[in-house]
Design a protein around this nucleic acid. Structure first.
Lengths: 176, 176
DNA sequence: TTCTAATCTAATAAC
DNA sequence: GTTATTAGATTAGT
């Protein structure tokens, strides 16, 4: 399990954490007057975070805008990054990946049944499944992609086992 | 441009073409009493189609259910597959891919602006963009995937040009 | 034709 | 084990 260290600085204050496209678009980067505070973030999937200022996170070449809930100061009276629980949650949401979908048994059953018959459903069938199963069409598409990968994997594994078995048979014969 | 040939047969009749998961799930395959008629289908992306009976298309290992609009007969009085315009459209919809999304200039502008800042937007930013731009979140995701591929392509091309230019420079020098 | 949206595979991350 | 994301290669629509 990897984790990244982020250096931070606070400059201004907002009522609630705000993460908006406006902020992303309105960003100006040219204010490097910083005192920084380390912040641990569990997000190994998005590369290395370089630093966080009052409303920005630099993430390698990439960048995110944020605003902080309250003004925070360290012992020297300098502003300090002190993420709240809700702030961290929101941050993780904005940085992170889609929450894992938990398919119900019934949904899986239907998807598997369709997969048996057609493992490459077109847009129409995907849409119909989505409506029927109360899922997004895109989740259906991803499910079929992953299901095909699984099938291929199991195929490869069974072939490997067959090769292994025939080698074993050969060796048995040699011992006779 | 490839195209597949499908052999077909009609057995029963319905008011309109019907493509349902119910049919896919309720399918029984064991009735191979067929006279077939070729049908051209433009769908090279989904593998080879083997045949169509009154309500099925066999597509390699895969399979789709269909029903035909009207009874059709050939000169011998045998049922024949005669797809109507609307039937073919529906068929293509069910077999085919998602209709190509046409992004507006304004949408592209915003997406490009965000891409400049963050080419790997997390689920939160994607959702926010989707809401803001009246697009599905997964279209946003695909757009960023394709945009990253384009960037990489142009990167490779400019590198190629630079190498080519320096070779050219070298050759010029040698001529002196 | 060129550009790019959509799809696929394979590998890998995350939970 | 299974869902989500990525890069990279293709296919195909405008």
């Amino acid at each position: 399990m990897a984790s990244s260290v982020v250096s931070c600085q606070i400059r201004r204050v907002e009522a609630r954490p705000v993460f908006t496209i406006d902020h992303i678009l309105g960003l100006d980067l040219n204010r490097p007057e910083l005192r920084t505070v380390p912040l641990k973030l569990y997000r190994p999937w998005a590369g290395k975070i370089l630093f966080v200022s009052n409303h920005t996170i630099l993430n390698g070449e990439h960048l995110l805008m944020i605003k902080q809930k309250e003004d925070a100061h360290d012992f020297n009276g300098k502003p300090q990054f002190r993420p709240t629980e809700s702030f961290s949650r929101t941050l993780n949401w904005y940085i992170g990946r889609r929450p894992r979908t938990a398919f119900s048994n019934e949904q899986i059953e239907v998807l598997e049944s369709v997969f048996l018959i057609n493992s490459y459903p077109g847009i129409g069938i995907r849409e119909e499944l989505a409506q029927r199963l109360l899922l997004d069409e895109d989740r259906i598409q991803i499910w079929f992609q992953n299901r095909r990968a699984k099938l291929k994997r199991s195929h490869r594994e069974s072939q490997f086992l067959m090769v292994k078995k025939s080698i074993g048979d050969l060796e048995e014969k040699e011992e006779e």
